[in-house]
Design a protein around this nucleic acid. Structure first.
Ligand SMILES: [Zn+2]
Ligand SMILES: [Zn+2]
Ligand SMILES: [Zn+2]
Ligand SMILES: [Zn+2]
Lengths: 138, 138
DNA sequence: CGTTGCAGCGTTATGCTATAACGTGTAGAG
DNA sequence: CTCTACACGTTATAGCATAACGCTGCAACG
């Protein structure tokens, strides 16, 4: 199973461990989930994970899902070049799809222009059930 | 100062207290913020606030802001009739604007239809600075 | 009427998420 | 070399949320 994109070479040890853990997971992980999976590697404190996550998120290699207080590896090597990303989160299997939509982005920037709001960051998260889980439940 | 909309008469005491507190606040409040403001009224435990908030959110009288772990009173008497609500949150003054956009809603439901995803709930939150704060900072 | 079911309430205890504050080690710039 | 920046490791603490218990009040039903 190939990872979504090659891990940059300049990650620190902790950052690499955390990103690897996220890449191997099929569902979002909380910082404490990650910590538990990395105890064998010597990590002991939440801060070690949070610090790594901060950097990964900053670089667009991982994303924070606000509605779950959890994190996923970025699924798309180039997503960080796009402005706005939406996440569709399956509440049954945990699968997360990320996608960008220019029309939505235009609507939001239009609203911001009209109201004089300066956007720093946008989160868009759809919760529900993915196609596979719907089929399985039927 | 009128409240955004008349409080329904059938709220319980705790629900009324919590909604009143949210209505009087100009910025989002965490459950613990609310609790602190209601100690004089006899509230003592987080659960009393969380239970009230659950009901208020369920009825659309309040909204949870996932990116803040905080709550606001609904600003619009009829917003709960609309499907999708977006929130613009000023990080300086805490002001929250809520708005609905049919085009965005269509784009999202289009994406869902294409991928077979069944949407239960969508959160959209824009963080940044409002027009007033931008003027003030200039 | 009695009783049954439901919703809210109050309390204690606990668990999960995130950051503050401190000091160490190391690599690059001047 | 020394200064700076950055990551690291650790301990302690702050902030957000729920589990589990038992009780109360009220409406529906026979
Ligand atoms: Zn991504
Ligand atoms: Zn699924
Ligand atoms: Zn509303
Ligand atoms: Zn503002």
């Amino acid at each position: 199973m190939a990872e979504p994109h090659d891990a940059p070479r300049d990650l620190t040890r902790n950052q690499g461990l955390v990103l690897g853990t996220l890449n191997r997971s099929s569902a979002p992980l909380s910082a404490y989930d990650i910590l538990d999976k990395l105890r064998e590697e010597g990590l002991r404190a939440p801060l070690q994970v949070y610090r790594a996550l901060d950097k990964l998120v900053e670089r667009g290699l991982a994303h924070r899902l606000e509605s779950l207080n959890a994190f996923v590896a970025c699924a798309d090597a180039h997503c960080h070049r796009k402005g706005l990303i939406a996440f569709a989160i399956c509440e049954r299997c945990g699968r997360v799809d990320e996608f960008a939509d220019e029309v939505i982005e235009e609507r939001l920037s239009g609203w911001a222009a009209n109201t004089g709001f300066k956007t720093e960051r946008t989160t868009m998260e759809i919760r529900g059930q993915c196609a596979e889980c719907l089929k399985a439940a039927a």
